[in-house]
Simulated assay, not measured.
Amino acid sequence: MRQIPVDTSAAMVMVAQPPTPKIANRQTGEVATDRETGATLMTVDVMFAMDGNAEILNLTVPQSGISGELAMGTPVALTGVVARPWENEFNGQKRHGISFRAVAVTSLVAAKAA
Rank of each mutant, 00 (worst) to 15 (best):
T8W: 02
A39R: 13
G38K: 14
N25L: 08
A54C: 07
T28W: 14
P62V: 02
A24Y: 10
D34R: 13
P19Q: 08
G65T: 01
M14N: 02
D45T: 12
A49M: 10
D7K: 09
A39M: 11
T37L: 07
M50I: 14
V46P: 01
T20M: 10
S64R: 09
E36K: 15
R26M: 05
L59R: 05
V13A: 02
K22H: 07
A54K: 08
A11K: 14
V13E: 00
Q17E: 10
A10F: 15
M12P: 15
S64M: 04
P18H: 10
V13Y: 01
G52R: 12
V6E: 09
P19I: 04
G52T: 15
T37E: 14
A10M: 08
E55F: 13
E55V: 14
M47P: 00
A10D: 07
I56M: 14
Q27D: 13
T33P: 13
T20G: 10
G52K: 13
V46M: 12
I66W: 00
I56G: 06
L59K: 02
V44P: 02
N53A: 03
Q17S: 04
V15C: 04
M14F: 13
N25Y: 13
V46D: 05
P19G: 01
A49F: 06
S9G: 03
V15H: 05
G65E: 01
Q63I: 15
F48V: 11
I56D: 09
L41K: 03
D51M: 13
E30A: 10
V46Q: 05
T40V: 08
P62E: 02
M12I: 15
A54S: 09
Q27G: 09
L57G: 01
R35A: 14
A39W: 13
T28H: 04
N53F: 13
E55Q: 12
I56H: 06
M14S: 11
V31H: 00
S9P: 07
G29C: 06
M47H: 03
V13N: 11
M50F: 09
N53M: 06
T33R: 09
A24S: 09
T20Y: 06
D34H: 02
T40M: 06
M42H: 05
S64F: 08
Q17N: 09
N25F: 07
V13Q: 01
A10L: 12
V31K: 12
M42V: 11
N58M: 12
T37W: 08
P19C: 00
R26H: 14
Q27R: 14
A54V: 12
